[in-house]
Design a protein around this nucleic acid. Structure first.
Length: 266
DNA sequence: GCTGCATGATGAA
DNA sequence: TCATCCTGCAGCA
């Protein structure tokens, strides 16, 4: 499900719901029993996000690291806990609220060093007001297609398949152009643009809308189902909104990239 | 009921 | 580059 903004939104929400509360943990599917026991009864102080990673801070050596992967999903509610426990990986609750987690890739006990290692291997995150220079530097040294580099979390943290496709279209850059062939000025413009798009998503319940104008009215649960939210993502065969050329798709690094062959010519 | 696919990431070859 | 892990749902029979 999640690209950067949705993860940051989860961090905000869980912080509001659970910070400064004593937390009870459970691992109904038994995969994180040990961790649940180690954290049980501790007080949560802060929830933050870096790229697509979540960090729950209890104390320097008791931090909880969660990565949702492609399918991870949270649900929240007020006690009592729901009966349905199918595929339920993890549950955190205060005296008032519960948070359930399914499908996540990582639920881990992090000490200070682990957190340092994580942040060290992630590139700048547009939502954390990082300087993009280190990311630009890496891109300019590579011959790998820019479309693939943008998905690499060690180059820029938080971008996923939707933002990758949409930011390239909005910049008129072909996903196949080698990283080193994308001028610094263009990189800068793409970074600024995707920062705005991600910020918008963060402020609109995680909805991603890259077409203009951004203030169009959308129903609450939109996205892939909203055909006019995107320029190219999942629009294979449909006419480009700018030039009418059919949108194309291609496999790139095991993922599908969508682009307009005319507006994003090499 | 089955199949394939989806906003992710890793480790082996 | 490929196989693998994770869940849910659309599309099909």
């Amino acid at each position: 499900m999640p690209e950067g903004p949705q993860v940051h939104l989860v961090a905000q929400k869980h912080h509001e719901l659970l910070s400064e509360k004593k937390i009870a943990f459970a691992s109904p599917d038994g995969r994180s029993t040990e961790l649940a026991e180690a954290f049980n009864g501790r007080t949560l102080h802060k929830v933050t996000a870096v790229g697509k990673h979540l960090l729950y801070y209890f104390s320097p050596d008791y931090q909880l690291h969660i990565h949702l992967g492609r399918f991870g999903k949270f649900r929240t509610g007020e006690l009592p806990l729901p009966d349905e426990q199918t595929a339920l990986r993890f549950c955190m609750s205060s005296r008032k609220n519960w948070v359930e987690l399914r499908g996540a890739v990582a639920i881990e006990h992090y000490a200070e060093d682990d957190v340092r290692r994580l942040t060290a291997r992630l590139g700048p995150d547009p939502l954390n007001h990082d300087s993009p220079d280190a990311g630009f530097e890496k891109i300019s040294k590579r011959r790998t297609p820019i479309g693939q580099l943008l998905m690499d979390q060690s180059i820029i943290a938080g971008i996923g398949n939707i933002f990758r496709a949409e930011m390239l279209f909005r910049a008129g850059v072909s996903p196949f152009r080698p990283g080193g062939k994308v001028e610094r000025e263009i990189l800068r413009r793409m970074w600024d643009d995707v920062t705005v798009l991600m910020q918008y998503s963060l402020e609109h319940a995680g909805r991603i809308v890259t077409t203009e104008p951004h203030d169009r009215q959308y129903p609450k649960r939109a996205n892939v189902a909203r055909p006019d939210a995107f320029y190219v993502y999942h629009r294979t065969g449909k006419p480009c909104r700018h030039c009418g050329t059919p949108i194309e798709q291609e496999a790139m690094g095991g993922r599908t990239v969508f682009y307009c062959p005319h507006c994003q010519a090499d």
